[in-house]
Design a binder for these strands. Structure first.
Length: 435
DNA sequence: CTGGGGATGGGGCCC
DNA sequence: GGGGCCCCATCCCCA
């Protein structure tokens, strides 16, 4: 015999204990804010805490403290509330941050729900386009009551009245969530190019996210996202979007406007050409694959690591380009004098994992004219100048070749290894402080 | 301080 | 849909 309410009531009890700080034996410090919780609950909910707490299982008599600087207290509140209630309070504003935090904490259920949330936002994009066409005949043109909503992104900006796409929470740069490698030059993730071009003065985050009133609760456990309300995220948005112009209930990333007639009339042609709307910014693309690629600039996903230096890229072609220019010395140009060089007039020089060409004259200038290529290669094999990074460099049949040969015949192959960066980044970014 | 060049990253689009 | 190329803007380093 099974009492169905037992699980939920048990969870409620635990949540109540958490709120009243009863039996809490774990403290989580997030950007200065302390969260109390039960280690067994955390252990059962998060792969990260499981690993963390299992390492300290012998010290169960001592309270455990974990410190995170990589996501905000608000984000962790959502995570912790989910752990103790099964309800995930996602909004268009927090979904990326929550997904990042869940990735850190190895909470696959939360990640999948976040993905579903984002995907549903994308579905809305398609449905709204269809809705535009289906409703366009009803456009009253004057009072706006029955006028269908329409996109107001780039077209409106081109008209000289750019909308603000500033995130309501500009104090939380994306990189804090650890998707970007340590070698990332800018401390704050730059805007996407299309926004940089259109809004060069803006320094805000890339995303334009919906209003906080648009909270959707997801129930976890079945792999299917469900709202706590009667309608799901999509249908709710579709109900509200076109009608009321005063509020902005649009789902993630959507912008609607009553707009001028001139702008409105120009839309259908554009909509047939540009079909896929990013849920987080104003960007619209023709192809779903392009949107998928574009979304990586919001999620920070970098699934293509360079086997030579470990730097990660969001796109394979960027990785290939990086590998060719940095590690293969494909440019037949002397790095010093910029003259064109050939195998006869120049040589490939190795500097750590970096390779470039120097003409014979410049080689002589720097005193490297006597360095034979295979000796150079030998030195590289025995004493890599850039630490152990080179150990990861996969060079096929490298043992008996010179660098020149390797470069010329292309056997310094770029090994493409698409990875899920979540776990590796977690290890790199989060160093919890256990006391 | 400034300008040039390299590296990077994003978008468009072809195959 | 993925791979890859081209173009362009931006950032960073260095002379």
């Amino acid at each position: 015999m099974e009492i169905s309410s037992h699980q939920s009531s048990l969870l409620q009890q635990l949540n109540e204990q958490r709120r009243q700080d009863v039996f809490c034996d774990c403290s989580i410090l997030v950007e200065g804010k302390i969260f109390k919780a039960h280690r067994n609950v955390l252990f059962a909910s998060s792969g990260y805490f499981k690993m963390l707490l299992s390492q300290n299982s012998r010290e169960t008599s001592q309270p455990t403290t974990a410190t995170f600087q990589t996501f905000s207290p608000d984000t962790f509140t959502v995570i912790l509330d989910f752990v103790y209630s099964g309800k995930l309070s996602l909004t268009g504003q927090n979904v990326i941050e929550v997904m990042s935090a869940a990735s850190f904490l190895q909470m696959t259920d939360v990640i999948s729900v976040c993905k579903t949330f984002i995907k549903s936002s994308l579905d809305i994009s398609e449905k709204e386009k269809d809705r535009y066409f289906s409703l366009s005949d009803k456009d009253t043109g004057s009072n706006g009551v029955e006028r269908p909503a329409f996109y107001s992104s780039s077209w409106q900006e081109e008209g000289g009245s750019p909308r603000s796409h500033v995130s309501p929470d500009p104090g939380k740069p994306w990189n804090k969530y650890g998707y970007h490698p340590a070698s990332q030059r800018s401390p704050q993730r730059p805007l996407a190019k299309h926004e940089q071009r259109k809004e060069p003065s803006k320094k805000a985050k890339h995303v334009r996210l919906p209003q906080p009133s648009e909270v959707v609760h997801f129930k976890s456990g079945k792999g299917e996202a469900q709202t706590s309300d009667s309608g799901n995220h999509v249908s709710q948005s579709e109900e509200q979007v076109p009608v009321d112009a005063e509020v902005d209930p649009t789902p993630a990333g959507f912008q609607y406007s009553q707009g001028s007639d001139g702008i409105a009339r120009s839309f259908p042609d554009d909509l047939t050409r540009l079909r896929f709307k990013c849920p987080f910014c104003t960007h619209v693309v023709k192809r779903k694959a392009d949107l998928k690629r574009h979304l990586r600039c919001h999620t920070g996903e970098r699934p293509y690591p360079c086997q030579a230096c470990g730097k990660r890229f969001s796109r394979l072609d960027h990785l290939s380009s990086h590998f060719r220019t940095i590690h293969q010395a494909c440019k037949l140009i002397c790095r010093k004098c910029k003259r064109h060089v050939t195998d006869l007039t120049g040589q490939v020089v190795q500097e750590g994992t970096r390779r470039y060409r120097l003409c014979n004259e410049c080689l002589a200038d720097v005193g490297m004219e006597s360095l034979p290529a295979d000796l150079e290669a030998e030195q590289h094999r025995t004493a890599p100048a850039d630490g152990d990074k080179d150990c990861r460099w996969h060079l096929s049949e490298e043992e008996n070749r010179s660098y020149v040969e390797i470069v010329e015949d292309g056997s310094a192959d770029l090994v493409i290894q698409q990875v899920d960066d979540s776990e590796e980044e977690e290890e790199k970014e989060i160093k919890p402080n256990i006391r």
